[in-house]
Design a protein around this nucleic acid. Structure first.
Lengths: 328, 328
DNA sequence: CTGGTTTACGCAAGCGTTTGCGTAGTCGAG
DNA sequence: CTCGACTACGCAAACGCTTGCGTAAACCAG
């Protein structure tokens, strides 16, 4: 920058003003300066700019990973969400700093406090409630993908898990199914809501759900297979499965097919998320779609608003059932 | 930091030294300072540190997206690669700045020049050869996922596409298949090499490939479906398909099944990449695996070396055929 | 006790910008 | 011609940290 100043015969301050389009600079001098800058292909050092301006235009997004996944980020839904966030961020002229966090440790050196980012997006309810509240109290611009919780000080964005779970289950009940298995770890809030939807649908139709048909593992395929095998071996009949995640649903379908059950003739299966694969497996999976693009938009809108000192309310996005051939 | 200095009764310089573990600071003073820092939960401002030190510990990774993908990043292989890079980066104490780049525009404001990152990884051969060479000349630490090209000044990492293509094809030929269709856009170097492997395998087995069996679209499912439909309608017989990407292979399988062809009885299909879905579709897809973890490691090793002013040679990683039930 | 080392810290420059304030020059009104 | 108001730019401080250099204090040998 000082080189440019010298060559243009002005001060560095003027170069800065010219490059930033300040009105207090002569049109002709500006021309000269920007021309010079281009020919030297100069770009401003964002670090120095951020330091001086006291803020930056990057936001950190935290992706959890399960150590069991051989350390890999594998959940397609998560990638879809991150992609949507990336898209929305660039649309806002922001950069994305991607962090991986061990979901069992759930701790993170706050990138906002270190000045590395201006805001924070957590893609999943991995952070403890208290830690999230602490962030909110510290006035860190912060949004989380996940279910609303009582007394939360922070902003969450989620799909309508209750409605989604209810929708999926009612679809099955409407098909005449009466013994619907549920697959999902209800210790996480999102899944718990989907499960509540499952129960609500049963109540609305006056059918009593069989608690023996509930499988509580969904992220660990090995455990899921074991639980499902036990269920099949116990000879407790069921004619449908609602899995609170597509990957689990697909795993369920595979095992059922391996055990000679026909889908959807013998048992209908519906998933949750509508990841890209859902349409590619055989049979194509009926599932409830989470609005990915809306999710990304809502998440970054939330932190943008907080950066501008505006307060934001939690949002829940509408979901929709996508009927394919795994149910009939 | 000056607060801590004041409270500890030392200068800011000493605080800095204490926090960075300099030996020129008294053990007892250090204790006092770090204790104070923790209690105020202070973290150093990385921007200022980077500015002063003249370097930073973040590297930019560029993910291409096809505008046709409704702007979304959808390729599972790409996500796998990015995940592997993220993992390796954190293992090296680096952060990851994720950029999206329109793959048709192929231009990018160099994050290294702006001081936003210390290095650059491009996940695909989207950057023009000239632009990549220019980066190398500018001594930007830089690595690209993709095939080696003649007279390249930069570092590429790729899997052994030639061998992979040959392997896949020989597997089919070994199964007695003689009319093997090829699906892939040979204008990109990686695919071109896979295609050469396809040809080499034919030569080795003394069978002449039929050029009418070559479909050149693979990233656009609509076009792919059209081309494949035309091939089927033209009644040009084939008993196998080698698709130079799993997503394309899966799409091919779907269409073939819809047209009443049995897989693998009527036509065998092999893909490329071994994305997670490959094992989930029906039938499970035979495919050539690209070593994702190695790829991530090689890529970040390459830029790390360049950051330390070491020169690095292009690397090609070994591939392996994963045989599943889509071939027989 | 003196002179030379070592230890433990302070001082201040500087990383590359931005920006408030000050000020020569220009201009138009009176 | 004088004077105030602009205009267009220069000056220098500041952003939060690191680090080379300088230096009191402590220590040891002679």
């Amino acid at each position: 920058m000082s080189d440019i100043a010298r060559l243009a015969g002005v001060s560095v301050g003027s170069v800065s003003r010219a490059l930033n389009g300040s009105p207090e600079i002569g049109e002709e001098t500006r021309q000269r300066i920007v021309e010079l800058a281009r020919s030297l292909n100069y770009t401003v050092n964002v670090g120095a700019r951020n330091l001086r301006r006291g803020h930056n235009r990057t936001i950190a997004v935290i992706a959890p990973f399960l150590p069991s996944d051989t350390q890999r980020l594998t959940d397609p839904f998560l990638w879809g969400l991150i992609g949507a966030i990336a898209e929305e961020l660039t649309a806002n002229g922001y950069q994305m700093l991607l962090y991986r966090m061990d979901s069992t440790k759930m701790e993170i050196a706050d990138p906002v406090e270190t000045g590395a980012a201006a805001g924070l997006i957590v893609t999943g309810q991995w952070l403890s409630h208290d830690k999230a509240n602490a962030l909110a109290i510290a006035r860190v611009p912060f949004a989380m993908w996940g279910a609303e919780r009582p007394r939360q000080l922070y902003c969450t964005v989620s799909s309508d898990n209750l409605f989604g779970g209810r929708c999926a289950t009612e679809h099955l009940l409407g098909l005449g199914k009466r013994r619907i298995a549920f697959v999902g770890d209800t210790r996480t809030d999102e899944i718990r809501l989907r499960h509540e939807g499952y129960l609500a649908a049963h109540r609305a139709h006056g059918v009593a759900p069989d608690p023996r048909l509930e499988l509580h593992s969904m992220f660990d395929n090995v455990v899921l297979r074991r639980e499902l095998t036990e269920l099949l071996d116990a000879d407790i009949g069921f004619d449908a499965v609602f899995a609170a995640g597509d990957m689990a649903a697909i795993e369920v379908m595979r095992l059922l097919q391996k055990r000679g059950r026909r889908i959807p003739e013998d048992v209908s299966v519906v998933g949750y998320d509508d990841i890209a694969v859902a349409d590619l497996v055989t049979p194509a999976l009926t599932t409830v779609r989470q609005p990915l693009a809306d999710a990304g938009k809502a998440l970054v809108d939330a932190v943008m608003s907080q950066i501008q000192e505006k307060t934001v309310a939690p949002r829940v996005l509408s979901t929709s059932l996508v009927v394919r051939s795994s149910t009939a």
